[in-house]
Amino acid sequence: MTHQRSNIRSRRLIPGLIMACLLPAALSSCGNKAGAETAGMETPVPELPVMTLDTTTAMTTSDYSALLEGKVNVDIRPQVDGYLDKIFVDEGSYVKAGQPLFQINEQTYREQLNKDIASLHAMESALNAAQLEVDKVKPLVDNKVMAEMQLKTALATLQTAKANVEQAKAAVASSRINVGFTLVKAPVSGYIGRIPKRIGNLVGKGDAAPLTTLSDISEVYAYFSMSENDFMNFSKGASGATLQQQLKLLRPVTLVLSNGETYSHKGRIEMVDGQFNRTTAAISLRATFPNPASLLRSGNTGKVRVEQLFSGVIQVPQAATLEMQDKVFVYQVADSNKVVRRILDLAGRSEENFIVRDGVKRGDKIVTAGIETLIEGTVVKPAAGSKDTVAPAAGK
């Protein structure tokens, strides 16, 4: 019985041992077969368009947010205190220099003027009396009828009377000025802004808000700011020995309105601030635009478009670049058609191209499409017809 159990156990173990021996051989055979198949397959070389870089002429454009102000933007403020009696103009109306705008009640100032005039007349009478006294005493002193001291006293009285007359004249002139200030006139020609005060309101020199704002918008100033790097590039590309010469030789600038339309008149940059803002590291500039149709008003916003012409530069299509961690790079086709990643130092943009300061040079070849999946060291095949492609030149 024991012998039979041993035979049965042996018969069960033999098939298992056979499978254990055959399994590694089978796996080895399958692995060798798969390896042979893989070894027989080659990864296809990607065929991509390639561009040969060359120097060219490029026009760059840069837009800067701008705030518009009239050529003259004046706050109209009262120079005397009083109640507002009349308003001669309406908000938004055009006025000429010297035209009346507001009338402040003048009664108090008119009465003061009359009082000062009366005082002047009194001082003039006192002067005449003092002069008569001198004329009377002088011959008596000359004939030694009266003491010389009396003449000196009469002359001193005369000098005091003259001084009183001059003081009274100054008071009259001041009162006349105050009466004139009650009629507020336009200092320049332009358009009236909002008028917050109404007839009957008390106005004065200490008011926080002006009576209105008057804008001369025959020309408008567009104020905008450039970063330090932009200004350095801007100055580097300008001609002229001095700043004023550079400003005169700059190309006209364009104003893009808030609705996206381009303003019909070109402007010129006429002012550059003397220093950079320490907080923003930017510098302010001013461009002047003609405004014959009065389309632009103080307070408008827009963008000043600055153009610069560069000669002998290299352009790279923006579509041929990738941006990663604030760096822009391209894939250059190097020896054996292997691609190498090159980081670009950009000087600006021209339409759909980047202007390159450093990173690639004339004669280099770059991949212009399909770069999203490329990795450094990949071998590529230049697509047919792309061997002699050169970056196009921008219009002059």
Rank of each mutant, 00 (worst) to 15 (best):
T2G: 14
N7R: 14
R11Q: 09
L17G: 13
A20P: 02
A20S: 13
A26Y: 12
S28A: 15
S29H: 13
V45K: 09
L48H: 00
V50W: 03
M51N: 13
M51E: 02
D54K: 13
T61H: 05
S62L: 07
Y64N: 07
G70T: 03
V72Q: 11
V72W: 03
N73P: 02
D81S: 14
Y83P: 00
L84G: 02
D90H: 09
P100L: 10
L101Q: 00
I104W: 09
E106K: 14
Q107N: 10
T108S: 11
Y109D: 00
N114D: 13
D116N: 15
A118I: 11
E133R: 15
D142L: 05
K152E: 09
T153N: 08
A154F: 01
A156I: 11
A163R: 05
A168M: 06
I177L: 14
F181R: 15
T182A: 14
T182H: 05
S189W: 07
S189D: 04
G190Q: 02
G193E: 01
G193Y: 03
P196H: 11
K197D: 06
G204W: 04
D207G: 14
T212S: 03
S215Q: 13
S215Y: 08
I217N: 10
N229P: 03
D230S: 13
F231I: 08
F234D: 03
L243Q: 12
Q246C: 03
L249W: 03
L250P: 00
P252Y: 10
V253E: 02
L257Q: 12
E261R: 11
G267I: 01
R268M: 09
Q275L: 10
F276Y: 15
T279H: 02
I283D: 04
I283Y: 03
R286I: 14
A287K: 03
T288M: 07
N291R: 04
P292F: 05
R297W: 09
Q308T: 12
L309H: 06
A319D: 07
T321F: 04
E323L: 09
K327R: 15
F329K: 08
V330I: 12
Y331W: 14
Y331S: 11
V333N: 00
S336L: 09
K338R: 14
V360Y: 08
R362E: 14
K365Y: 02
I366N: 12
T368N: 06
T373P: 01
V379F: 05
P382E: 00
A393F: 06
K396Y: 05
